[in-house]
Every structure is written in C-alpha cells, then in structure tokens.
Amino acid sequence: MLDSVKRTSVYQPEQLGLRFPEMPDFKSPEEQRLHLKKRLVAACRAFAQQGFDYGFAGHLTVRDPERPHLYWTNPMCVHFAQVRLSNLILVDHEGRVVEGDYAVNRAGFVLHAAVHEAHPDIVSMCHAHTEYGTAFAALGQPLLPISQDAAAFYEDHVVIGDEAGKVAVEVKGGHRVANAFAGVKAAIHQNHGLLTASRHGIESAAFWFIALERCCKQQLLIAASGQTPRLVPPDKARYSREHVGSDYIGWLHFQPIYEHLVATQPDMFT
C-alpha cells in the first residue's frame, strides 16, 4: 500500500521518500528575490538554447516579491546567452530603471508594464520574436487541439488583433494588448508573435512560451502537408488542459531545464 501524500497534481508521486521537485519555501523576501532572479536568468539562457534570439528583440519579466509595482527583466541589447545575475535590471511601470546599469527595451516596457499593471495576479511574462510563432501569428488564428501538447492551450489562449503589426512603443498600444490577458496564459499577437503570462512564476511563463512555439511549428507542418488533422474532441482537450496545462505543470516542466543549465552554464549567476 502506498503512503498517503497530499498532492495538487497527478504527476506528484504517491509514495513517500522519492526524489521529486518541490515548491520552494522562502524564509525572507531577499531569499525569494534571489530565487526569482536566478530563474529569470535561466529562462533567458533557455531561450538562447531554443534559438529565440533576434537582435535586441525579446523580453522576460518577473515581479519583485517585496515591491510588486517593480519587475526584473533582461537588459537591452544583451544576448539571451549573455544574461546573468549581475546585468538584470529592475524597472517600474513608467519604464524607469531603478536598479541596474543597462537600459530597458522600450517595446518590452510598453507591453510588459501594461500587462503587469492591468493584471496584479500576473507575476511573469515572456515574449520573443520566434520563427514559427511569428509565422503562425500572421494567420490571425488560434491554435487547434491537434495533440495532447496543443490541448494544454485549449480555451487558454487568445488571438489579439489590436495593434497588429505595429511596433509597441506607445503606452496606449500596450494597454490594448494587456486587456486581452484576462484569465489566459498565452496570446498570439497578429503579425507580431507570441506572449505568455503566468500567475505562478517565470518558470511557468518560460516553459509555456517554449511549448507554444513548438505547437505553432507543429500546426504549420500539418498545414503544409495538405492533410486535414483529426482534432482532440473538446471534452478530451479540456481534460488534458486541466492535467497538463496548469501553471504548476509549466513550473514542473522547467525544472529539468533549470538543472541542466545550472550544470552546464556556471557563469549564469555571476
């Protein structure tokens, strides 16, 4: 008989004593801040590994645990592969850098600050100019539930048509995009690309961005085949989303990515 373990997901082991990632318990805001900043750096490095870089485009943010009106983000004009603890910047909703030596990406500030300000429950957000996500965004269509992985986004993402194709450097444009993020974890911004948000943390936002890019690629591949896919039925798509599409599952998926980066890129935390 298995020992009883309180679980929030079916993926958590029922047996006691097995090695499995556990949510951290912080003793101070300083400890939590360091934890979040390390995961933000790792998320940037993961984006580099995925080939999500495109010049200075792309921005990842996470709220400060003690000052929720401020958020940490990657510095302007620093490659994802070169982001480290020492060059992260802390920014307010007006785009003013309050800690750090680098400038903030104007488009990143406009989009992310608007989302963070409009949705106090959103603690982290990711955006990058990716190959498949950008191509898919040109269609102005939602993802289809073509697979278990795609079902994770079923009824949990939106297509944003406002400001489509217009560079987000005006604050009002950021507010129009932010309005669409109520209650969903991802958005496809027409003629622009992908955005993900998390009420949990940077790990979840980063993993679901990686997953969304993969799903866009897969749907484009199916479209290129000329064949009509068999979709996951709505009831089964919702069932899969509930079990494999949560913020917790996004966090869990990111754990092996983080551990691999820690083992292979020791310069991250310098």
Rank of each mutant, 00 (worst) to 15 (best):
Asp25Asn: 11
Met268Gln: 07
Arg176Lys: 08
Gly100Met: 11
Leu18Gly: 08
Pro21Met: 11
Arg230Glu: 14
Asn87Leu: 08
Lys217Val: 03
Leu195Glu: 02
Glu30Tyr: 00
Val171Asn: 11
Val115Arg: 05
Phe254Arg: 06
Glu259Thr: 05
Gln82Thr: 00
Arg39Glu: 04
Cys126Glu: 09
Ala186Gly: 04
His260Phe: 11
Glu259Asp: 09
Cys216Gln: 01
Glu213Asp: 13
Met76Gln: 07
Asp53Leu: 09
Arg7Ala: 00
Gln190Asn: 15
Tyr11Ala: 04
His260Lys: 09
Thr228Leu: 09
Ala135His: 12
Tyr102Lys: 08
Ala186Trp: 01
Lys166Ile: 11
Tyr239Trp: 12
Leu231Ser: 12
Ala150Ile: 11
Ala206Trp: 01
His260Thr: 09
Arg19Phe: 14
Arg214Asn: 09
Gly226Cys: 10
Asn87Gly: 10
Pro256Met: 06
His253Ile: 08
Gly55Ile: 04
Ile160Lys: 02
Gln141Ser: 13
Ile160Leu: 04
Ala150Phe: 03
Asp121Gln: 15
Glu242Gln: 14
Arg241Phe: 11
Leu195Asp: 05
His253Ala: 11
Arg199Met: 12
Tyr132Ser: 06
Leu261Lys: 13
Leu143Ile: 00
Leu194Glu: 00
His253Lys: 14
His192Thr: 05
Ala224Ile: 00
Cys126Pro: 14
Ala113Arg: 03
Lys27Glu: 04
Ser147Gln: 12
Ala81Ile: 15
Arg33Val: 03
His69Asn: 08
Pro29Arg: 01
Gly100Val: 10
Phe136Glu: 01
Gly165Cys: 01
Gly193Ser: 12
Ala57Gln: 12
Arg67Asp: 15
Pro229Met: 08
Val262Pro: 02
Gly173Ala: 13
Phe20Leu: 11
His59Lys: 00
Trp208Asn: 02
Ala57Tyr: 07
Cys77His: 11
His253Asn: 10
Glu259Ala: 12
Leu36Asn: 10
Trp72Met: 09
Gln15Glu: 15
Arg241Trp: 03
Ala114Ser: 12
Gly250Trp: 08
